[in-house]
Simulated scan of single mutants.
Amino acid sequence: MKIGLYFGTFNPIHIGHLIIANHMAENTDMDQIWMVVTPHNPHKKKTSLLDDYHRLQMVFLATEDYPKIKPSDIEFKLSQPNYTVNTLAHLQEKYPNHEFSLIMGEDNLNSLHKWKNYEVILQNHTIFVYPRISSEVISGEFINHPKIHRVGAPVIELSSTFIRDNIKNGKNIKPMLPVKVWEYIDHNLFYKK
């Protein structure tokens, strides 16, 4: 089975994440997309994150109507901070019959050379890249790389930071979130402070 791994803190998951994940599930040869909830991204401050299990629950609520999109807590069990190369090695060992690919925005592709053992990732895994408006020019090393595939997915300029800031400021962000995610956030009074 071909699995696309869409990593994120999903703090919170929003419709932009779902649009990208669904596009990848429907328009590539991947059988499933796993939304991998990252407990601690080495490039982000942990203090701004909701509890891991709340974020996982929101991903579960957001994806339950999409049979090809699954929530994953695989990184919860691994040492932190999480490095993608370690997660991939763990997944390959746990699911030897699956073929794992990465899904990332063009902005992340530009910083791929800073990732721990990125050469190992590129050697063993395909990367599916979706467009971002705010992208810089792609580094020469990655322009025509045989393991990197650009996918003409919709360009979604919506961020979890924007959503959190708007909730904090009392704005209505309901259209930006799956209904059950909005209800979960509203019920728990998340991101109000």
Score class of each variant (00 low, 15 high):
S72C: 06
F60D: 07
Y66T: 05
I156C: 13
K192Y: 13
H113V: 11
F162R: 01
P146E: 09
T63P: 08
H23W: 08
E75M: 03
P67T: 07
N22C: 04
S48D: 15
F128N: 04
R150H: 14
I143M: 07
G4E: 02
S79I: 06
Y118P: 03
K44S: 00
L61S: 10
F190V: 01
G105S: 12
N86T: 07
G140Y: 08
V155D: 07
A62F: 09
E26C: 12
G16K: 05
S134P: 02
M176G: 06
L122S: 02
V59N: 06
Y66W: 03
T38K: 00
H17W: 07
T28P: 04
P154F: 07
Q123K: 13
S111A: 08
V179K: 15
P12A: 04
N97D: 14
A153V: 06
S79W: 00
F76K: 12
E93I: 11
R150F: 15
S135P: 01
V155H: 07
P12M: 05
H125G: 08
W115F: 10
V59K: 02
E106P: 02
S72G: 08
I20C: 04
Q123Y: 02
L78Q: 09
Y118N: 09
D73M: 08
L109Y: 07
Q92S: 15
A62Y: 00
T63V: 10
I133N: 15
Y95Q: 15
G152M: 11
H90W: 12
D52L: 04
H40V: 02
M176P: 00
T38L: 06
W115D: 03
N124I: 05
Y184Q: 00
N172L: 05
A89K: 14
E157V: 04
P67H: 13
L50M: 10
N188M: 02
V179L: 15
H90Y: 15
K114V: 09
K77N: 10
G4W: 00
E75Y: 00
P42E: 03
K45D: 12
M1S: 11
F76I: 07
D65N: 15
G8M: 06
D31H: 15
P71L: 06
L102N: 03
W34S: 00
E183R: 10
F100A: 11
P42H: 03
Q80G: 02
S159Q: 03
I163E: 02
S72N: 10
K168M: 12
M176N: 09
L91C: 15
D107A: 09
T38Y: 01
K171L: 13
I138D: 05
H113Y: 13
K68N: 08
D73P: 06
G16I: 00
H98K: 13
P12L: 05
D165H: 11
N110I: 13
N97L: 14
N108W: 04
I148N: 07
I148E: 11
G170T: 06
I3S: 05
T63E: 06
R55F: 11
N117W: 04
A153E: 02
F142S: 03
T9C: 14
D186F: 13
P146L: 12
L102Q: 05
T84N: 06
E93K: 14
Y53A: 13
Y191F: 12
N110R: 14
H90C: 06
N166C: 08
I15D: 02
A21E: 01
T87P: 02
R55L: 01
F128C: 10
G105H: 10
L49R: 01
I167D: 01
